[in-house]
Design a protein around this nucleic acid. Structure first.
Lengths: 200, 200
DNA sequence: AGGGCAATCTTGTCAGTGTCAAGTTTTGCG
DNA sequence: CGCAAAACTTGACACTGACAAGATTGCCCT
């Protein structure tokens, strides 16, 4: 179908306005849909432009590149992740939030950890990633050092690996068998209890 | 440079022979190089053909598709992984071998766990994946059930998540800081000791 | 030995894509 | 009010994956 000209601002006239209104956001959400469904390799700037009802070169004005679009997505993802990790009660809760983030924002998650698709030196990306890193380290250092093995640094790597591996395998449908119809977050809580013999 | 015509079989004549000799393997290894360097999205069938010194349509005869090529890589990867996991002494050794596999075959590893790039119903892929799954389950069930928490199924998920997450984060250069110049396999051994309070 | 068939590889073509350059419309600010 | 910049369009170019049809070669079978 012809993309149903949405004025979305201004005149309710019949013809599509020259300016979209919020093209940047429209392209971003369309891209997230495509990536969540078929992965980043299925992403086409021209297709996104068609979905938004604009010309094929319009996205370039907001993101410059295909790489620029993906970098913006990754930066947004790290921001969202940092936000939810900062509200974690303890380390286990941080892990659960990590898994939940991957499930609720699969496109962000996938792009965030595919560095060859990103502009590594992008400022927004690096600062957002640093924020997320701080949040993660904060959650790790909050646990009493006696309860974990030797090094808090290594304990952080262990926790991150467990959560990241679980989330990744979950998204790639490699845990459909073992997890079954159980709530993945609840399953992860059990795994986390195996790693750290702490409370609950 | 012009791809240095390698007769590799038959006449040492100066002109390149019509048949390549082992084009399938040549394309595969070239693809692995490209993927290891710049990820699957940088893969171009025409570029691989140029590297092998054949025409742009030659690869299609061996792999049909871009998807077919990636599926063949994934199948080969699962075969290699199954082979090394079957020789593991115990669960921790299986984890170490898992991480070593990811480091020695980063292209295989990346493609194996990117299902949207693969032909899901391919026979060679599904059988190879099943073999690898059996090998993993074998390594998990070898450990005495008392030493791990409750369910062996869940213990397997925990071990797989830890190894997979560590390998993934390693390949995406997210552990360059924490691991530093230490041997990653040795670091992982420490993490594995945290998960399972078993021997050594 | 040799004839023919299938596997392998080539050439040609088409639609689709990312990116750049240059022009057009609109917004907003001095 | 006017004008510069932002937002978007049109056009073009090189590149890609895929398909079709033809050329070359290895190999099997009698």
């Amino acid at each position: 179908m012809p993309p149903a000209q949405q004025p979305s601002t201004r005149q309710p006239s019949t013809r599509r306005p020259y300016h979209h209104g919020d093209l940047r956001r429209a392209i971003l959400t369309a891209a997230l849909d495509v990536i969540a469904a078929d992965g980043p390799s299925a992403l086409s700037l021209r297709d996104l432009a068609r979905r938004a009802g604009v010309s094929h070169a319009a996205p370039a004005h907001h993101f410059k590149d295909r790489t620029g679009l993906l970098t913006a997505i990754a930066a947004e993802g790290f921001g969202l992740l940092a936000h939810t990790l900062n509200e974690a009660a303890d380390l286990k809760d941080a892990g659960v939030r990590y898994v939940r983030f991957a499930r609720e924002h699969p496109a962000h998650f996938q792009v965030m950890f595919t560095p060859e698709l990103l502009r590594a030196d992008d400022l927004e990306l690096t600062t957002a990633r640093a924020l997320a890193g701080d949040a993660l380290r904060g959650a790790v250092s909050a646990v009493r050092p006696e309860s974990l093995g030797i090094d808090t640094r290594l304990a952080g790597v262990a926790a991150w690996s467990l959560a990241h591996g679980f989330a990744t395998l979950l998204l790639s449908h490699n845990l459909d068998g073992p997890v079954g119809d159980k709530d993945p977050e609840e399953v992860f809580r059990t795994l986390a209890a195996m790693l750290f013999r702490t409370e609950s």
